[in-house]
Amino acid sequence: MALMDDVAAAEAVAWRHELHAHPELLFAVERTAGFVAGKLRAFGCDAVVEGVGRTGVVGVVRGRTAGGRTVALRSDMDALPITEATGLPYRSTVPGRMHACGHDGHMAMLLAAARHLCATRDFAGTVALVFQPAEEGGGGARVMLEDGLLERFGIDEVYGMHALPGLPVGHFAIRPGPIMAAADRFEISITGRGGHAAMPHLCADPLLAGAQMVVALQSVVARNVDPLDACVLSVTQFEAGAAQNAIPNAARLAGTARVLKPATRLMVENRTRAVVAGLAAALGVEATVQWTGGYPVTVNDPERAAFCAGVAADVVGAGRVDDAIEPMMGAEDFSYMLEQRPGAFLFLGNGASAGLHNPGFDFADAALPFGAEYWIRLVETALPAT
């Protein structure tokens, strides 16, 4: 099957540029959702349901042959609170917001696939086109699930895709099992006894305790995690004091932990709490740890991952598909969907672009036909017409 023709490709580019110029954050994606819903209705979807998971949109397309299975294809919709620095003609028109993670491209590809599927319906069964809000920290996938996404639309399998800078355009990458990490956040509050910097013996220095905690927390990974396992613990914030001649009363640390295994995730939290408690006791301060669980590990079903690699190979050739990419320590809330239904998440090459979440990032228009064709071929292969 050939990639989309020049007219269809140009229209997908125009959609992406329109979406890129009008970024919206988290669940407040009303304009974006309206744009998506309008296109799905114009294409002739059998149903278009808005307001799923607050502002999500689901389009339903039934094949020309009846079938009992429903496959979901998911795109995220939200942007990031980043000031764009691309200088592009279609750059963000909203100060302090931009599509720095490729969600504009994700939507354009799924819309292009939706138009083709509505026109041809060359499959048996049903496709649910899921446009999700709040991937960037809001857990929009979880909220859509809580709103009955899977049950309301009878979804049996779920599939996701994401642009990947550094992977050439026209290439795909995937792996069975864990492909993206769980991401937790922690905050450590330290309370001591402040005083004059010339008389530290009369104080209980929370800054000293915090400094030792920053160093000691590196042992959580270095001396507790199997070297063949993947784990990152980073202290990213340290706040204390306001005067050069005063020891403060309090200090605050914050950071993130990323893991690929549930057991490692629990161990890192427990060891962090133990290290903080031990140092607080030794240095005469009080300390509390607030641990906030983030997105879980994104785990591809091995059978579906192999299936997706095969579909991608049909689109671009086996030599352009890496089916054993190394896991990445970023996080993705599509993981919530994969916890409840079998499926897989793969990466689409974005070429030598700036990195994700970078002010200079832009989704590669040349990648749109490959992603749209992948979605079409996935549906027609997973739900073959009889």
Rank of each mutant, 00 (worst) to 15 (best):
M199E: 12
N300P: 03
R252F: 07
W375Y: 14
L383R: 00
G210M: 05
E146P: 08
V49D: 14
T386E: 15
P206D: 06
R320I: 03
C231N: 09
F186A: 11
E157L: 12
F370W: 14
L26T: 10
L19G: 01
P384A: 01
H22Q: 13
L260C: 08
T32I: 06
D147V: 09
A10G: 11
T236M: 07
R271T: 11
V60N: 03
D76C: 03
T65I: 09
V94I: 12
V48L: 12
D46I: 04
V61R: 00
T126H: 04
A112V: 06
D365S: 00
V58G: 04
E239V: 11
Y336P: 04
G371T: 08
T70Y: 03
E269T: 08
A306V: 11
Y295W: 05
F123N: 01
V143A: 14
H357K: 00
Q237W: 04
G360L: 01
G105M: 07
L207R: 06
A8E: 15
G343D: 00
P302L: 13
R41W: 08
V36C: 02
R115W: 09
G67V: 11
T264D: 15
V289K: 04
R341D: 15
Y159P: 00
I188L: 05
I82C: 03
P369D: 10
I174H: 00
I190S: 00
D147W: 02
L117V: 04
G105I: 09
V7D: 14
V379N: 01
R115S: 13
T256F: 12
G139Y: 04
R16S: 11
V127T: 00
A124E: 11
R54Y: 13
A28T: 10
E136S: 09
T120D: 14
V276N: 01
G56R: 02
T70C: 15
F131S: 03
A372R: 01
Q132E: 13
Q244C: 10
A182M: 07
